[in-house]
Nucleic acid binder design. Structure first.
Lengths: 222, 222
DNA sequence: TCGATGAAAATTATAGATAATTTCTCTTTC
DNA sequence: GAAAGAGAAATTATCTATAATTTTCATCGA
């Protein structure tokens, strides 16, 4: 990931915190205390507060006046909501991107798919998956749309890491291949339909909780 | 509009500035100088900076490190982009809201439509139009989706005010009526299709510029 | 044992001050 | 007359300090 050395301190802090929240290093509901974070980053709390506002905008944190900021919680409802928003917006982006897709881009997307299939851990799978989606959608040239999709991907990744924290089994992604095949044939409609269904597929998995009982975990796997 | 007396100062400032940007009181590209704004609101610049971050997240302002913040500009491309995003997301919201719509809600939506038809100025038309959309979409119960749609409505309003700053002619909104009729009959699919088309309708209008030449102005009128 | 109560500590929100960067303006040069 | 450059003014980003609020936690009484 780009280090962004010319970023403002607030931006740097928000990137680090976003990564921690997404990866699950900070639990949902946990309080983010500005002075502690300021001390950790060797700054005052003013840039920390600006970083908080940025995280709020991404939906990763929730701030209440005079009560500080805490990591946003989420439930199955929000997983579904994000999945449906992604489906609607990624399909839109793909329709606009399709005319500008080159075979060079599609080759890169295929490599990303292969990298995903070979991933031994969630983290690298997510990275490859995000690269695939980004590659085929970016040529739409709609910055606002792409920014919104990026935020939704961050949310997706969070759900994914929460469910599949450690266990992860390799699996080949047929949907990605079907989408690429359709795009190569110029069949945008088919690719869009497959993408829409692909993104809404919610994986379920029994997970052993700390208290010993098993609950079901949910995440967007696409 | 709610005054929000228990809001933080930063939130209050961001609401006032957002309103000015949307109404066109501050021109696109204009710089927002933190000390000036701090003085106007009788505060220090710290809450002003937080308000800036909030405006950035809404897409109303753009900040560059060490160069401050300026009001975001927009072009026909962005008008189209916002229209298409609204179409995709409002259709999604409507499909989920439909099962929860009561005739009481639909009556209120009809009143909003009538209020829009009677409006003598853009500002009150926009308010009525926004109320209509909000009423029929809110019951979907998807907070993230609704928040995103709200931001897109703010952008739409901005485009509208920029194009129709003063001149405005009354017109009856047939689309709104068709959508309501379909919803009353339980025909969600038809309502969704009409809404999707309605939101993407971009009004065009010749406008006399300051330099005397006429250019074409564009805005989402729905 | 449980809940209420009231300091004490921690934390947030804002103000005022400072260093660093950018922008502006005026002059000089070609 | 236009372009370039130096210096001044304005502005941003950050730090330190302070007031106000919330949370914590021990104590008291039922």
């Amino acid at each position: 990931m780009a280090k962004g050395t010319d970023d403002t301190i607030a931006v740097r802090i928000s990137k680090v915190l976003a990564d921690r929240i997404i990866s699950g290093a900070i639990e949902p509901g946990a309080r983010l205390r500005q002075d502690h974070i300021a001390e950790e980053f060797q700054t005052s709390h003013v840039p920390v507060r600006e970083a908080f506002r940025r995280l709020e905008a991404q939906g990763l944190a929730i701030g209440e006046p005079r009560r500080g900021v805490r990591v946003a919680s989420f439930d199955l409802g929000e997983v579904k909501e994000v999945a449906e928003m992604r489906a609607a917006l990624e399909v839109l982006a793909l329709r606009h991107a399709a005319p500008h897709l080159t075979s060079a881009i599609l080759d890169l997307a295929e490599e990303a798919t292969k990298a995903g299939d070979k991933s031994r851990d969630v983290r690298s799978w997510e990275e490859a998956n995000r690269a695939f989606h980004r590659l085929i959608l970016a040529p739409c040239g709609m910055p606002r749309l792409l920014a919104t999709i990026d935020d939704l991907h961050a949310a997706s990744a969070r759900f994914l890491f929460a469910a599949w924290r450690s266990e992860w089994e390799t699996r080949t992604d047929q949907d990605h291949r079907a989408i690429l095949a359709a795009l190569r044939q110029g069949n945008t409609e088919s690719a869009a339909v497959t993408l829409g269904r692909h993104v809404q597929w919610i994986g379920r998995k029994p997970v052993r909780t700390a208290s010993g009982t098993t609950r079901e975990a949910f995440a967007i796997v696409g």
